[in-house]
């Protein structure tokens, strides 16, 4: 098992390099460049100032050479400095990472804690009122564009009813209130962004856990469990659920890329001071070093998540215990 973990962990490095290469090339192929934004709109900027900028940042060299330079620094976790304000990219990202992780982790938790019970209850009471209601709700959930839902939430719950704050994470008054109140306020600010980010995931995962659960409940070992005289509760929550969870673990790992790419949109909509919004602004400004930094960190988080879900799977399924075998 230890060997397997190490192998999988090491595998992340080449994957990260490959993906970073693709990202780098795509970013440079995309129309526009830093000088056209920063200086292009200003008619007073001379051609020589422009080429001077390109030279300083090495943008005049071939893309492959630029990538090689980038890669070399990357091994020392040096992502360069931002074009916009000259601050090191890594410190810009690190200051934004906690907010993103908080939002992602909350969404992840909400997805799991909401979707799983919905899936289980729907499966157990298949065809019942709850199941049918949820089927319709999930259908709507799939059909609604999540960003539009986010705007609706902001409009109705935020502006009209004034129930939740619509933007930001820590308001100006936070420094004046006590620890518990501040935590409560933070939770309060989390409600709408989490709702919007988790919505699609809840819809998908609840469907998935429903079908996984239905399949498990039709298995012979569930019949055996009933024939032993176990309570229905135990049959469902122990025998069926433990097996149904196996594919769900994999799916949970696969929801991560969606969550992270969603963070670009939702952090911008809700003015959440996270890495996604940083990335969005960087893209808008052709701030290449920041774009690369954010993209690589996001990729790393995604790969790490998938790795963790694989480990969880291996731990949960006794049939996949690598090498070490207890007797």
């Amino acid at each position: 098992m230890g060997k397997y973990i190490l192998k999988r962990l090491l595998l992340i490095i080449p994957m990260l390099i490959g993906i970073s290469f693709i990202l780098f090339v795509v970013m440079h192929i995309a129309p526009g460049d830093p000088t056209s934004v920063k200086y292009g709109l200003n008619p007073d900027i001379s051609e020589s100032a422009r080429s001077n900028f390109n030279k300083i940042y090495g943008l005049d060299r071939p893309v492959l050479v630029q990538y090689a330079t980038w890669l070399r620094r990357f091994f020392f976790l040096d992502f360069g400095d931002s074009f916009m304000d000259g601050r090191p990219v890594i410190s810009k990202i690190m200051s934004r990472l906690p907010a993103t992780l908080l939002l992602q982790a909350s969404s992840f938790l909400v997805i799991f804690c909401v979707a799983l019970p919905i899936g289980i209850i729907s499966a157990v009471r298949r065809g019942g009122l709850f199941d049918r209601t949820m089927t319709v709700a999930v259908f709507i959930g799939y059909a609604l564009p999540a960003f539009w839902l986010a705007l609706l939430l902001i409009f109705f719950l935020g502006f009209k009813l004034q129930l939740f704050p619509v933007s930001g994470m820590v308001p100006w008054y936070a420094v004046y209130i006590g620890g518990f109140a501040r935590a409560g306020d933070l939770l309060w600010h989390l409600v709408l962004p989490v709702f919007a980010t988790a919505f699609g995931g809840v819809a998908a995962l609840s469907r998935y856990s429903r079908s996984s659960m239905i399949e498990a409940m039709g298995q012979n070992y569930v019949l055996t469990a009933r024939a032993k005289g176990l309570s229905e509760r135990r049959v469902i929550l122990v025998h069926a659920l433990r097996n149904a969870l196996l594919p769900i673990i994999t799916i949970m790992g696969l929801t991560l890329p969606g969550l992270i790419s969603g963070s670009f949109i939702f952090e911008t909509i809700f003015a959440w001071p996270g890495m996604g919004r940083l990335g969005y602004e960087a893209i808008m400004n052709y701030d290449y070093p920041v774009v690369m930094g954010v993209a690589v960190i996001s990729t790393f988080l995604t790969l790490l998540g998938i790795f963790l879900s694989d480990i969880a799977y291996a731990a949960a399924d006794p049939r996949i215990r690598y090498e070490t075998r207890r007797t």
Binding site: L223, A227, G229, L230, S231, R242, N243, A316, D317
Partner: peptide
């Protein structure tokens, strides 16, 4: 339901046709 539950396994027990799927693989 409770009387039935107590009857199953306790008063009347059953061994199934398919030993390969009748046991829970993760327990």
């Amino acid at each position: 339901p409770e009387e039935l539950r107590d009857m199953r396994g306790n008063a009347i027990a059953m061994v199934f046709q398919e030993p390969f799927t009748a046991l829970n693989p993760v327990i």
